[in-house]
C-alpha cells in the first residue's frame, strides 16, 4: 500500500485524540506534546513522547492517559499486541475508563475491548440511594467483572464486616444489600464501604464505594377519617311534596260517607249528617294542611346500609393501620446515600 493511502486511512480511522476523549488537559508537558503529535498524525513521535512521559513522574490520571495514548498510537501503526498491552495498563490504572464508540474508530475500540477481556477488574461499581424501613427493603448494587472470577461483596464499617454475596460471576452483576446485621437488626448509622473483591487464580482486584447510612424512627401511618373516594350519604331523605295526603284524606272520608249511606236503615229516615260532616271537615282540613306542609324526613334504608358498610370498612382499615403502626414503632427507617468519592482499598 502506498504511504499516501495509509495516511488517508489513518486520518479516517483515528480522529484527534483529545477531541475523541474529551478529557482534561494533562499536567505533564511531555504528555501534552505526545498528544499534540498524535493529533498531528505523527504517531511515531507520539509513541516516543508517551514513553518518555511514562519515564517521568506522572499522576495516576496522567499515567493512565499516557498508556491509553500509546494504545491509540500503536493501533494507528498496526501494532496490535503493543496496543492491547498499553490498553491493559490503562484499564488497570483506571478500571472505569470507557471509550466513546461514536467517536473512536472501531479498530481502536475492538483492541480496547480485547484488552478489557484479558484483565481482571471490577468496573463501574454503582450504589443507588435508597430509603426503606429496616428489614423491608434493600440497597441496589451493581458492577461489572471483566472476566470470570470469584467475587465477594462485603459491607464494611469500622470493625463490622458483613458479607453481601460470594459467587463466581462475570459480566454485569446486580445485587441487593438488605442493610441488616446477622441478628436481623438494621445496620448502624455511619459511613459504610461496599467492597467488591474479585479473585481468579493469581489475579485479584477490588473496588469499593462509600455510603452514608442514616437512621430515624419509621414514620407511622395516619389514621383515616374517611375512605378516599367514598363519602357518607344522608341517612334520611325528604320525600317530594305531593297531593297524596289530601287524596288519602278524601278517600278515607269518602269511604266513611259511602259506608254510612249504605248502612243507613231507610226505615229510620235520612242519614244523620251532622256528626259525619264534622268529622269529614276535620279530616279533609288535616289532609289539606299536610299537603301544604313539607313532608317529614324519612329514613333512607339504602343509604343507612351503605353508611354502615362504609364505617365498617373504615374501622377495619384503621385497625389494620393501628396494627401496622405498632410494628413500625419498633422499626427504624434507613436512608442510604452513596458518597461522591470512591476509594479503593490497598
Amino acid at each position: 500500500m502506498r504511504p499516501s493511502a495509509l495516511l488517508v486511512l489513518a486520518l479516517v480511522a483515528s480522529p484527534r485524540y483529545g477531541a475523541a476523549q474529551a478529557l482534561p488537559t494533562p499536567q505533564n508537558a511531555t504528555l501534552r506534546e505526545a498528544i499534540q503529535a498524535y493529533d498531528n498524525l505523527d504517531f511515531a513521535r507520539a509513541i516516543v513522547l508517551a514513553h518518555r512521559a511514562l519515564g517521568e513522574r506522572l499522576r495516576g490520571a496522567d499515567q493512565a492517559r499516557a498508556y491509553e495514548l500509546l494504545g491509540f498510537s500503536y493501533s494507528a501503526t498496526d501494532s496490535q499486541v503493543k496496543a492491547v498491552d498499553a490498553f491493559k495498563q490503562a484499564i488497570l490504572l483506571d478500571p472505569d475508563r470507557q471509550l466513546d464508540a461514536a467517536k473512536v474508530s472501531p479498530k481502536i475500540t475492538s483492541l480496547f475491548y480485547s484488552a478489557l477481556g484479558q484483565v481482571l477488574v471490577v468496573r463501574q461499581l454503582q450504589v443507588d440511594s435508597a430509603r426503606f424501613v429496616g428489614g423491608q427493603g434493600a440497597v441496589p448494587l451493581r458492577f461489572t467483572v471483566t472476566s470470570p472470577a470469584r467475587v465477594r461483596v462485603r459491607a464494611v464499617s469500622g470493625s463490622t464486616s458483613l458479607l453481601v454475596d460470594s459467587s463466581v460471576v462475570t459480566g454485569t452483576v446486580n445485587l441487593r444489600w438488605p442493610a441488616r446485621l446477622p441478628n436481623g437488626d438494621p445496620v448502624a448509622a455511619g459511613t459504610w464501604l461496599i467492597v467488591v473483591e474479585a479473585t481468579a487464580g493469581q489475579n485479584a482486584f477490588s473496588a469499593s464505594r462509600a455510603l452514608a447510612v442514616t437512621s430515624s424512627p419509621a414514620d407511622t401511618l395516619a389514621h383515616l377519617s374517611s375512605l378516599p373516594g367514598y363519602h357518607e350519604l344522608p341517612e334520611s331523605e325528604v320525600p317530594p311534596q305531593t297531593w297524596r295526603p289530601l287524596g288519602m284524606a278524601f278517600l278515607f272520608t269518602a269511604g266513611a260517607a259511602a259506608g254510612t249511606v249504605a248502612l243507613n236503615n231507610s226505615g229510620l229516615g235520612s242519614t244523620p249528617g251532622r256528626e259525619l260532616v264534622a268529622a269529614s271537615v276535620v279530616t279533609l282540613v288535616a289532609g289539606f294542611v299536610m299537603t301544604l306542609r313539607k313532608p317529614a324526613p324519612r329514613p333512607a334504608e339504602g343509604n343507612i346500609l351503605y353508611d354502615r358498610l362504609l364505617r365498617e370498612q373504615l374501622a377495619q382499615r384503621n385497625a389494620a393501620i393501628a396494627q401496622e403502626n405498632a410494628k413500625r414503632r419498633l422499626q427504624v427507617e434507613l436512608r442510604v446515600l452513596p458518597l461522591a468519592t470512591a476509594r479503593t482499598p490497598p
Binding site: 254510612t260 243507613n264 236503615n265 256528626e275 268529622a279
Partner: peptide
Amino acid sequence: ASYAFQRFDRSTNPGGLPQTSVPMEQSLA
C-alpha cells in the same frame, strides 16, 4: 277526632207476638 256510625237490625217478639223489626242507629262524633 272520630266519627262512628252503628246500625243494629234488632228484632223482637214481645209477649209472644210475631217478630217485629225495631232497628236502631247511632252516629257519634
